[in-house]
Simulated assay, not measured.
Amino acid sequence: MTTKSTAGRKLAPANDNTGTEAAARVADVLLLFAGGPRYLGVSAISRELGLSKAVVFRILQSLVSRELLATDPGVNGYRLGQAAAALGASALRRFDARTVATPILRRLRDETGETTTLSGLVGDERVYLDQFESPREIKMTVDIGRRFPLHAGSSGKVILAFLPEDRQESVLRRTLEPLTDKTITDVDALRTALAETAREGVAVSLGERQAGAGSVAAPLFGPDGEVHGSISICGPQYRFTPEAIDRYRGLIRAASEEIRDNWTWLRDSEAGSA
């Protein structure tokens, strides 16, 4: 038996497409945990992503070994691990929009007495990144990190209204699933609502994402002029009277503009000191 040395011989490059596909599968598995139930099993992930159970199991074991996922005794499933939590916390600390939005959303909460929120655009969905809870006994709170479709609720609609046309059309071509009986699922009706939102710079929802909840939202524009998320005022629907909504429209619009200006100033000041 003989062997040949590989010294001085260029190895064949790995298949870039194969590597990209594998990385995409890992990312897709992790993203399921970001917006789904706390625990997910091999079978559920396999069905959702259209992957074989063997492939899913290998991905899960790799993620567990790096503490991105974890298991608990007596529970048949996987959950996000400590490393994933650390990544999320680090991302929030480094997200400039959250830095500049925090004092403004706290002030807005104090002015309105209602919960204020910050959402980020993730792919073709949105995720709650932060909230400042109302001091009232009866109030609305949101699930940080949970993903929601863009067609349901004011925070999603106001992002969708300001997306580039091709991305907006991609969302509108999908089946628009109802989250409540008030969710707009008719494409023509949604187009009308989005056009009004684009004109007004503000979206309103009365029970569209969550039954009994009212909200008013404005887009979160970055220094690049693109929409990166949204901010909202939200609370029990019965408190969102026409008079309250009119007041909140002006407040949320002004807050959005202030965040954009401060974000731009922060970006420019950091660039100048580099």
Rank of each mutant, 00 (worst) to 15 (best):
Q61S: 12
V26F: 08
F221P: 00
F132T: 09
W265Q: 11
H151Y: 02
Q82E: 15
T99K: 13
G222A: 08
D181F: 13
R66H: 14
V204E: 01
G41N: 04
L40M: 04
E270G: 10
V158F: 05
V187D: 11
E196R: 14
D16T: 05
A24M: 02
L179Q: 09
L40D: 02
V75Q: 06
S205L: 02
R58T: 02
L63W: 04
D143M: 15
T99Q: 07
A211Q: 11
R260W: 03
D96R: 15
L129D: 00
G8E: 08
E200D: 13
A22Y: 10
G8T: 09
R199N: 06
R174Q: 15
R191T: 03
A195L: 01
T197M: 08
R107W: 02
E226G: 06
Y78M: 00
A91E: 13
A161Q: 00
I252Q: 06
K139W: 11
Q82V: 11
Q168R: 13
A189C: 08
V56T: 00
P164D: 02
R173A: 10
R93L: 11
E48H: 05
W265Y: 14
L150H: 06
R126G: 07
T71G: 03
G153P: 12
T71S: 04
T264L: 14
L105V: 05
L60K: 00
G222R: 02
A254S: 09
S154L: 03
V42S: 01
A12G: 10
G250K: 14
S232M: 08
V204C: 04
R253A: 12
L105H: 05
A271N: 09
E226D: 11
S230G: 05
T102G: 02
G153N: 05
L220S: 05
R93I: 12
A86H: 14
C234W: 07
K53T: 11
V216M: 02
T141G: 14
